[in-house]
Design a protein around this nucleic acid. Structure first.
Lengths: 109, 109
DNA sequence: TAATTATATTACCATATGGTAAAGTAATTA
DNA sequence: TAATTACTTTACCATATGGTAATATAATTA
């Protein structure tokens, strides 16, 4: 399948949302279920404005769903496949590391 | 599994490399096999210095392997699982679109 | 209604990033 | 060796981005 530049743009945009440590921290904190902003702040140690900002980005990109409940606003990940994605990257990175170490070892310093 | 901020940083870095249209174009052009810089330029319509720059980033991140052969330099993707990753994102985006259209339709304007 | 709590937004700064022209390097051929 | 081809690097600009303090908004409670 040949993807158009526009389609690649959407994919790039999705990856860009995932390309920041703080946002990954927020997503990780939501792995165990929906949380409100304060809970996310406490779990990630990020500043309040910062968390709000990142949550907005995640929500607009559709990675996360916003649900106001009284004074609080709860967020949860829209699609659990997101974690499969991260898992896959983890595996690739592990394998990459392993292959690099093999290359290093083969040199017998 | 609870990931450290350092680990998340590596994952974020990987996603960041994939978060640019030009780099995705380059990777797509390598889907059919190894290519040299000129071939990549022609297929992607990107400038020469630009392609070189992105190839450097892709190589340093370990997504692509560099192989000089005479005057030319050939590049190929290090791990075909990379395309599974993009495929997965594609599917998630499609589903996202579908769900959004359902929401729209349910409003009966 | 006033005060409080929870979240969002704005304004600002410092830094990072993509694209490109121009110069540099390296292998090949005449 | 001079010229050519293929690729890389550098310098520069314009723009985008994360973090934060301060301010705004919105829901709840006293």
């Amino acid at each position: 399948m040949k993807l158009s530049v526009v389609a690649l743009g959407q994919i790039a945009e999705y990856f860009k949302v995932l390309s920041e440590v703080s946002r990954l921290q927020v997503l990780c904190s939501l792995k165990s279920g929906a949380k409100n902003v304060t809970e996310i702040m406490n779990e990630t140690q990020l500043g309040q404005a910062n968390v709000s900002k990142h949550l907005k980005i995640l929500t607009q990109a559709g990675l996360v769903v916003r649900q106001p409940r009284g004074v609080n606003v709860y967020y949860h990940v829209a699609d659990p496949k997101l974690f499969d994605l991260c898992e896959l990257v983890c595996e690739m990175l592990k394998q990459q590391l392993q292959e690099r170490s093999v290359v290093l070892n083969s040199h017998h310093f």
